[in-house]
Structure formats: C-alpha cells, structure tokens
Amino acid sequence: MAPNVVLVTGVADQLGGSLAARLAANPDIDRVLGVDTRRPAGLPARVEHVAVDIRDPRIGKVIDTAKVGTVVHAAPRASVGPLRSVIKERNVIGTMQLLAACQRAPRVRKLVVKSTAEVYGASATAPAVFTEQDPVAAGRDREPAEIEAYVRGFARRRPDVTTTTVRLAELIGPGVDTELARYFRLPVIPTVLGFDARVQLLHPQDALEVLERAVLRDVPGVFNVGGDGVILLSQAIRRAGRVPLPMLRAVIPAAARLVRGAKPVHFSPDLARLINYGRVIDTTRLKTTFGYTPRWSTAQAFEDYVRTSRQEVTA
C-alpha cells in the first residue's frame, strides 16, 4: 500500500528532485513534501516545497504538522570542494536532527536513507567484492559511515519503523554531476602509476527505481545497489575518448587542476582511493531480498554517460 504523506529531503539535487516528482505522480500518494533550502527548477506543482534546513529543529514541526508517514533522506552528498565543511555539517548534523524529529513523530512508519558504497572505503587490503555484512570503514573523512551509524541507532530506538538503507555505487549517466563524472570529462586524465582500478557504476534511473520501490514496499535492511559487472579505469578512459596520464597518486590533485575541464575536479580522499584501488559491491540481496535487478549494467551506464556527454559538447 502506498504511503499517504511522504517527505523527501534534498530535492534540489537531481536524485532527490526526480524521486519527489515520481512520487507526486502516483495517485495513491496524497501529499509529497520536498525539503531543501533551494527550490529546484522544474519541480512539479504537486510537490510542496518546504524551504527549511534539516539542521533546523523546525523540521520536526514540519513532520508533525503534515502528518508525515514516510521520510526519504536523500540529502546526503559528497563533501568536496570549497564548501566541504558546510556540506559535511549538513550531512552529519542534518541527519541527526532529522532522525531526532522522526523518533519523536509517532506517525512516521517508514524511513528510507540514501547512502553510498563509499562506506566500505577502498584500499589494498579490501576484499575483491564487498557484501552488506562487511564492516564499514571508519575515520575522520568517513561521514557516510557516521550517518549510517545514526540510522542504525534510530532503528534500534524505533523498531516499529521500517528502515531501509540503500548503498549506491558510483552514479554515472545523463545529468549526473559528480566528481567522478567530472574526472572522466578531463581532456587528459591523471591515473595512479601501476594501478588499473575496477570500478562499478550505477545508472541514475536504476537508483531512482530502487528508492521509489523502497518507499512503496516494505523492505527493511541494508542493500548494495550497483550495475552488473565492472569496468577497468583504463577501459573507461579509452571509451570516453580521453588520454590517460599515469603519475604518483600524491600529485594527481595538482595535475587535475592543471588539466581542468569545463568544471573543476575536487579530489576527495575517497575519489583518490577509488581511482587507485577501485571498489566492487555484491548485489545479491538487492536481487533476491529487495526484488530488483538493475536494468543498466556498469558498461551500459558508462556508455550512456559518454553518449550524452558528447551530445552536450556538440549541442
């Protein structure tokens, strides 16, 4: 049964805004509230934009007043660039405030959290394929793991709430503007000398489908979400029509600034580890327990990204 009132955070971002629009188009859902400090262009009129920062305690009043039954936390994003500290605070403090509000709201019966496969990290000693049972990586630059820890705490305190966490692989495809997408747009791409990372990708349409299903169905637990197969970094660079430039990992951020493309690439610690060691996640639980098989493989998602990127250049 579809929920009556759904609140989606982070609707100014592509994924959150698209999810809110899809839920608003569902006639079985009475109301969709889109929370963000900015109102995105193209947000459907049926999505009620709520201009509030989730770090603000007023988010609790919004949930109570609107009688929200389902909360989708799609706001967490990669904390990179000049606003890194601000984004990190929104990710961590915003999640704490939102979960505290949900805990106090008796009508909330479902929580869906957009997480990332970044929680596993990437290193020379990492397993070839991560499963949901593998420990997450801790550390000062690991706020995705910190966010998930708060979610687990919430699930223990509110066992009556169906809590679903989806760990998304690296998004790539039309309209995606992540640091990895910008990295592949560089005219000359710095790579780590002596390494050829295996990378698993996820098309945004599959990510959107998984989040929507988590809202409409009761599928508690943690689920890895990624396209089938992997692509070697060297293969991706070649298919993108770019030129690799092998170098020591320590000098890659400086090199990326020298060969910058249309938009700068801010090398977060995770992106640096990813292009060095790669990361692959097991999606068995997604297919068997959650009941969804991604329509786009890693290779197909990357091909769609390359195709649309070339169209943008020639337009």
Score class of each variant (00 low, 15 high):
residue 34 G to M: 04
residue 263 K to A: 11
residue 266 H to C: 02
residue 33 L to S: 09
residue 249 R to F: 03
residue 76 P to R: 05
residue 89 E to T: 14
residue 123 S to Y: 09
residue 210 V to Y: 02
residue 201 L to C: 04
residue 24 A to F: 06
residue 88 K to D: 13
residue 17 G to C: 04
residue 177 D to S: 13
residue 189 I to M: 12
residue 263 K to S: 06
residue 10 G to M: 01
residue 215 V to P: 04
residue 184 F to Q: 09
residue 228 D to H: 15
residue 194 G to L: 11
residue 287 K to L: 01
residue 266 H to M: 05
residue 120 Y to T: 09
residue 37 T to G: 11
residue 144 P to D: 07
residue 178 T to R: 13
residue 31 R to D: 07
residue 2 A to N: 10
residue 62 V to N: 03
residue 79 S to E: 12
residue 39 R to T: 10
residue 288 T to I: 08
residue 153 G to S: 03
residue 237 I to E: 10
residue 142 R to H: 08
residue 110 K to M: 09
residue 315 A to I: 07
residue 297 S to Q: 07
residue 216 L to R: 13
residue 197 A to H: 05
residue 213 R to D: 10
residue 130 F to P: 13
residue 142 R to M: 15
residue 169 A to G: 09
residue 29 I to D: 10
residue 43 L to N: 09
residue 104 R to I: 00
residue 105 A to F: 00
residue 180 L to I: 12
residue 85 S to Y: 14
residue 282 D to C: 12
residue 114 K to N: 10
residue 110 K to Q: 15
residue 193 L to T: 11
residue 315 A to G: 14
residue 21 A to F: 06
residue 9 T to N: 10
residue 72 V to L: 06
residue 86 V to E: 14
residue 213 R to L: 15
residue 63 I to N: 00
residue 12 A to T: 06
residue 23 L to M: 11
residue 3 P to N: 05
residue 290 F to L: 05
residue 52 V to G: 02
residue 257 R to N: 13
residue 2 A to W: 03
residue 24 A to W: 07
residue 54 I to W: 04
residue 48 E to P: 00
residue 109 R to W: 00
residue 275 I to Q: 05
residue 183 Y to S: 12
residue 134 D to E: 13
residue 53 D to H: 07
residue 43 L to R: 06
residue 197 A to D: 07
residue 230 V to Q: 13
residue 150 Y to M: 15
residue 273 R to Q: 14
residue 246 P to W: 12
residue 300 Q to I: 01
residue 190 P to T: 11
residue 97 Q to P: 00
residue 112 V to K: 03
residue 142 R to W: 00
residue 202 L to F: 02
residue 8 V to Y: 09
residue 112 V to H: 04
residue 160 D to M: 01
residue 253 P to E: 12
residue 1 M to F: 04
residue 1 M to R: 05
residue 7 L to R: 00
residue 75 A to K: 02
residue 100 A to I: 01
residue 54 I to E: 07
residue 287 K to M: 04
residue 211 L to M: 15
residue 299 A to I: 10
residue 225 V to N: 10
residue 186 L to E: 13
residue 12 A to F: 03
residue 168 L to C: 07
residue 118 E to S: 15
residue 196 D to F: 04
residue 26 N to F: 01
residue 278 G to C: 06
residue 136 V to H: 14
residue 143 E to D: 15
residue 43 L to V: 08
residue 158 R to S: 03
residue 116 T to A: 14
residue 296 W to N: 02
residue 120 Y to E: 07
residue 215 V to H: 11
residue 6 V to G: 03
residue 253 P to T: 14
residue 216 L to W: 12
residue 263 K to M: 04
residue 173 G to P: 06
residue 234 S to L: 07
residue 186 L to D: 10
residue 291 G to Y: 06
residue 192 V to A: 08
residue 127 P to I: 11
residue 245 L to I: 11
residue 177 D to N: 14
residue 193 L to P: 00
residue 233 L to Q: 15
